[in-house]
């Protein structure tokens, strides 16, 4: 059984006519100890999907259909106080932009100790602080800095603090939402390395969101590409990113959008146009208008996720068609 099994999940922002269906009937699974990457352009529903898992969506968002099974229990219809039991103890989040994700007026030691004290009642404050210090050491920050405040750290170090905090209760699943986006390349590499080694030490499963495909290719066991609130392609990192393997034109174009530093300098091959307006209903494939290989059918029939190989699926009528 998978640790996390999301089925047919839809999340809507707002309601009625002006409502935006940000996630539309999406499946997602994360196995025990597995690293799953979630990629796609901005606004394609990655973060919404991830935040729906422990239901950290804003007030004006709601889960309209689907189930979120975590260790066999459905989180999608749990109350806020029931979810509070699961949050951080089982599912923690490394938030996008950790620069503002730490409370400015509390010491980081107290902030890391806080979930321990909440989820493990009976733990003394001193014991929790000691564990916070151990966690800081584990992410490469001196324990003596546990009484510092977040503004006294650099961006990379705050991200390390955030990671230490995410691991505080030894969760089973860590959702890392763009954990390295705001950092420089050297720090990015360090943080990724840290995440990888910690996941082995702590036996973590991870859902890693990034729009940097090379990061996902390097780190993840499986990768899921999203477009306009739908899954475009899912498979092992090799299935999705392998030279001859990507089966969805969107993935192929995404891969071409990254410059190759070994090649001659030239304009990178972006994808013209924008993702469609999700407040309107769509017929056919959502990528059809920007797709260079679309055929008539693409504009009328919505493609299903078609099986390509054991783990590889692609939502394209021309599966494997345009190499």
């Amino acid at each position: 059984m998978n640790l996390l099994e999301v089925k047919n999940l839809s999340v809507q922002y707002g309601s009625g006519q002006g409502g935006v269906l940000a996630v539309d009937g999406v499946d997602l699974s994360v196995g025990v100890g597995e690293f799953v990457g979630l990629a796609g352009e901005s606004g394609c529903g990655k973060t919404t999907l991830a935040m729906a898992i422990p239901n950290l969506l804003p007030k004006y968002a709601s889960i309209t259909t689907g189930t979120i099974e975590f260790e066999g229990q459905d989180l999608s219809n749990k109350s806020e106080s029931e979810l509070n039991e699961v949050r951080w103890r089982d599912i923690s989040v490394i938030f996008q932009g950790a620069l503002n994700a730490l409370n400015p007026v509390a010491t980081i030691g107290n902030q890391i100790a806080e979930p321990i004290l909440i989820h493990e009642p009976g733990t003394s404050h001193d014991a929790a602080i000691t564990r916070a210090k151990e966690l800081l050491e584990a992410v490469g920050i001196s324990a003596s800095r546990s009484s510092s405040y977040s503004h006294e750290f650099s961006g990379g170090m705050r991200q390390r603090v955030m990671i230490a905090m995410a691991l505080a209760c030894r969760p089973k699943l860590v959702i890392a939402d763009e954990p390295i986006t705001a950092l420089d390349v050297m720090t990015q590499a360090q943080i990724l390395e840290l995440l990888r080694s910690l996941s082995e030490t702590f036996n973590l499963s991870m859902l890693l969101i990034s729009h940097d495909l090379s990061v996902l290719a390097e780190t993840c066991d499986r990768v899921q590409i999203m477009y306009a609130g739908k899954v475009a392609e899912v498979g092992t990192a090799d299935d999705v990113f392998g030279e001859q393997n990507s089966a969805h034109p969107y993935t192929q174009r995404l891969l071409k959008s990254y410059p190759n530093i070994h090649q001659e300098r030239k304009f990178i091959d972006g994808i013209p146009g924008y993702p469609p307006d999700l407040s309107k209903s769509h017929a056919g494939c959502r990528f059809a208008e920007r797709c260079t290989v679309s055929v008539e059918k693409c504009f009328t029939d919505e493609p299903e996720l078609a099986v390509i190989s054991e783990l590889h699926r692609s939502a394209c009528h021309l599966v494997g068609g345009s190499k």
Partner: peptide, 14 residues
């Protein structure tokens, strides 16, 4: 603020 989402994610009572 972002840190309020962090606090919510920690499972703190309201």
């Amino acid at each position: 603020e972002d840190f309020m989402l962090t606090a919510r994610g920690k499972g703190l009572p309201r």
